[in-house]
Amino acid sequence: MGSAVSTLAVRRRRKKPRISAARLILHALLVLYALISLVPFYFLAIRTFVPTRLATQFWATLPPQEEANLDASILAFAQNYGLSTRALRERYGVDDFVRTNWSLRRFAEEYQIDETEFREFLRPYVNYSGWLNIAMDRQYLRSLLATIFVVVVGVGGCALLSTATASVLAKFSRRYHRIVYSTYLLQTIIPPIMILLPLYLIITRGLGLQNSYFALILNNWKGGALPILLFTTFVRTIPKDINEAVIMEGGTHHTYFFRIVLPLSRPAMAAFIAIRTPRFWNELLYGFVFLNPRRYTLAPLIASKIGTFVTNFQLVYSALCFSLIPIIVLYLFFNKLFINAQLAGSIKG
């Protein structure tokens, strides 16, 4: 690259950046990296439309529409494409027990169903089984709502508690302020898996929060290095004179906290929410351990779809996409906030 590439400092003084070969190469490399970065997302989107039966072939674009094989047994079809016998009974008004060892063709013949109509009914199962299952299975919606609840209450509560903690620690006027601050920073070097086994005992036996979303929420509320670092640094930017003025006018720490710190902390809270939301949205371990499968949040629900011997890839990838879409949309809307928060957090760290 040599000196052809100027530095940020020198460049600031120039009115127009010089277009050099080195600069062009750097831009080309950025474009290449960005494209490579997007490839997995592209393949993920395509794979949600590739039936598991066709998964052993390479698909760069959407595969052609498949017809249902009517000679397949109802059981095999149900396993591969998620067709429930209840859906069959309801659709064709069948009161009897559906014999899953029958072929689909025999089922159609027994109940005098038109073959063309039957194929039409089965077509979405063959081609979009992943998305169809997500739309029909209420556990996905329940899980999405649970995730939103845990993230909103967890991140919001953590922001509030951390601001309260920071309003005291930021003074660094007493010896114990430094000790508490350092204790919080310790959290960066404690891997969650290390404390998981005894934590399970405390949460379930000690607090009786087995299968409760509050087990996850409390683990968010406890804070840690990042929120304390972020909010303490922020509170320290508030001029000391303001605190002194509040006290001179007969105010207390409550006045200082509710009238000054909280209203001024909005940018820090926004930065914290931007950094923390994706992490809590994707929290797997605590959900996996503390919740029963029926109450899983999104990450553990998706993890539970990975089978030991049989995996419906189309469903797994659709479910992964389903969990990604909300957070990616949120990220794209607030990307500037997120990026600024990341950079600011790094500088402060």
């Binding site: 950046p17 750097l26 950025l30 960005a34 970065s37 994707n282 992964l320 969990s323 990616i328 990220y331």
Partner: peptide
């Protein structure tokens, strides 16, 4: 090294995108 351009802004958005994927994902 690079000045603030639209390409750089777009790149920033893309380079953070994988962080939205969960570990299990």
């Amino acid at each position: 090294e690079l000045a603030q351009t639209l390409l750089k802004q777009v790149f920033f958005v893309i380079v953070y995108l994988p962080l939205m994927i969960s570990g299990v994902g």
